[in-house]
Amino acid sequence: MQDEELDRLLARAAASPPTPAPALLERVLANAWAEQDRLRSVDRPTDRSATRRQTGRVPVLDWLAGAFGGPPMLAGVFSAAFAGAAIGYLEPGMLDMLTGGDAELVDLFPEVDFLTTEG
């Protein structure tokens, strides 16, 4: 077969695509709409991110989390702050109970009076 004859035949085939059955198009479209419905139900606002979408305002905790590098980091900062406050205010005996260790009171400045004496 000549090249030109084959080219014409291929062009003829390109111009005659099979027509999809209506039932196939209906199934494809039904899948499309079902997938849209599924996406809509997954995306339904139930959490703080919805506040942002709906009002444009960022909830305080979300803003703080963003400032500290995310919710896990923010939780770590809060934990460290709580631990530091606890260590500062609790008596050594209470600290013992919390840590399971032996806490000793060490006076770093045994002669601190020179700092507080006036005159």
Partner: peptide, 14 residues
Amino acid sequence: ALALTRRITPRILG
């Protein structure tokens, strides 16, 4: 969805 279905399905079917 309708437009894409009509455009692309026949090509893939063929």
